[in-house]
Amino acid sequence: MTKIKSLADLKKKKEDLQSKIALREKSDTPEGRVLVKVAMATCGIASGSKEVMEYMVDELDKRNIDAIVTQTGCMGYCYAEPTIEVKLPDQEPVVYGYVDTRKADEIIEKYIRNQELVDGIIPVNYQTIEKDKEE
């Protein structure tokens, strides 16, 4: 891996990465790509998020759905673990709570395939900060 040698280097790297991520979200298929994030902190794993993650990876692949499944940290909804976030192309991400493999199946078939929302959505209840801007 090449080292980052200056602030200018760092900024360039960031822009490259950001456009790579933007590209990844677009993908080349007309329907675009689905992004799934599984909350994998201790409490998530304790309530079964590992199985959910494996299930998602396997099943999306088996069912020929072009998707990227990644892990992430605590979303804060520990009462509703396991939680996953699903982002369909050109849509706001949606968080689902209490996801077991049955729920995951429902999410794949109904939400990911048909864009039909499924019970168990966890509304975002926090504000995020605009990261880049100095205010």
């Binding site: 902190a41 605590c74 209840n125 995020t128 900060i129």
Partner: peptide, 12 residues
């Protein structure tokens, strides 16, 4: 939204 995520900005 009563919460603001600064320390947790990237978590999740």
């Amino acid at each position: 939204k009563k919460q603001i995520r600064i320390a947790l900005r990237n978590c999740g």
